[in-house]
Amino acid sequence: MLRQVLTRLEQANALDGASDRLQAAVTATIRPRSLRDLLHGTWLGHPLHPVLVQVPVGAFLSAALLDLAGTVTSSRSSERAATALIGAGLAGVAPAVLAGLVDWSETTKDRRRVGLVHAAANALATSLYATSLAARLTGRVTQGKALAFAGLSVAGAGAFLGGHLSYAQGAGISHAAPEVARVPEEWTVIGSLSSLPDGKPAVRRADDVAVLLFRQGDRVTALIDRCSHEGGPLSEGDVADGCVVCPWHGSTFRLKDGAVVHGPAANDQPVLPVRVRDGMVEVRRP
């Protein structure tokens, strides 16, 4: 039943109107590329949103444990510590939300539908925690605890949807990483050096894995051709300043080491070992 609900949510095109409007608002509001790269986690080589959510999640969960302890022992110090943790958790919500929205705005429609409900659940949880904090600060501790436990339950549902986005729908993962495991372990000839254009990208195959080759004289670099962001064909993108730009969403990677320079990709592009022997280009799995 739960799987059926998730499938229906992925296919719920009734959410597309709200999703499209929010996507347009995020794109229009968060415009500087440097800011978007910061929020994507491009500088980190890893999506930033999952890192930032640890602050509110950890604070709220710790507050729940202290609330339970305070209820059992009637400890005022536990109650005060729980209140402080809820305040800290609320302070950590904004950066996590911004990073999540920027990532969400660059995903496919089916992911945005699930992400919209994920965001709505987290917004409700945040409201419950904010109300809980207000109740605690005005002496209504029992009400504050009840609101916090309700917030934790809703946040748990939102986290479940976040997990579905990542692990079932592949949001935020490297779409290039699985290709590496399919590259042969032994050195494999994928073409002649003379067949590669100098200074332009070319695609060859190692077994059935598409590999982007870039030749400069006798030197060749090899990257997985499938973009780590959404699987776009890097070999069809532009090359400038030693980087290749994905033709789908503009993710930019250094050719020499695959490092991500601009998002929306946050993961580096896998690079393959390459050598030239007897005029033939060979690659293998790292």
Rank of each mutant, 00 (worst) to 15 (best):
L2V: 15
L2K: 08
R3P: 02
Q4Y: 11
L6A: 05
T7L: 09
Q11F: 01
A12H: 01
L15H: 13
D16A: 07
S19N: 07
R21A: 14
Q23R: 14
A24M: 07
T27M: 05
A28M: 02
I30G: 10
I30Y: 05
R31L: 04
P32M: 02
S34C: 00
L35Q: 15
L39Q: 10
L39S: 12
L39E: 12
H40E: 07
L44T: 04
L44E: 07
L44P: 10
L48K: 03
H49L: 04
H49C: 08
P50E: 00
V53G: 00
P56R: 05
P56Y: 10
P56G: 03
A59G: 11
F60N: 07
L61R: 03
S62Q: 02
A69D: 03
V72W: 10
S78F: 02
A82P: 11
A82I: 00
A82G: 12
A84P: 13
A84D: 13
A88S: 08
L90I: 03
L90Y: 03
A94V: 13
A96G: 05
A96R: 03
A99C: 02
V102E: 08
D103I: 03
E106D: 14
K109E: 15
K109W: 06
D110Y: 08
D110P: 12
R111E: 14
R111K: 15
R111M: 05
V114G: 09
V117R: 02
H118Y: 13
H118P: 10
A119R: 02
N122W: 06
A123N: 11
L124N: 04
T126V: 06
L128H: 10
T131C: 15
T131Q: 08
L133V: 10
A135G: 08
R136C: 15
G139V: 06
R140A: 13
R140D: 14
T142W: 02
A146N: 11
A146Q: 14
A146R: 15
L147N: 12
F149W: 14
A150V: 07
G151D: 01
G151C: 00
V154A: 04
V154H: 01
G156M: 13
L165E: 07
L165T: 11
Y167F: 13
A168E: 11
A168D: 08
A168Q: 11
G170V: 06
A171V: 13
V180P: 10
E185P: 09
E186W: 00
W187S: 10
T188D: 05
G191T: 07
S194Y: 06
S195M: 03
P197Q: 10
R205F: 13
Q216A: 13
G217P: 12
G217F: 07
R219F: 04
T221E: 09
D225N: 06
R226D: 00
V239M: 04
G242Y: 01
G242P: 12
V245W: 01
C246D: 09
P247G: 03
P247L: 09
G250V: 02
F253N: 03
L255V: 08
K256H: 15
D257H: 02
A259T: 15
V260I: 08
V261D: 08
N267D: 13
N267H: 15
Q269P: 09
V271H: 03
P273Q: 03
P273D: 03
P273K: 02
M280P: 00
E282V: 04
R284W: 11
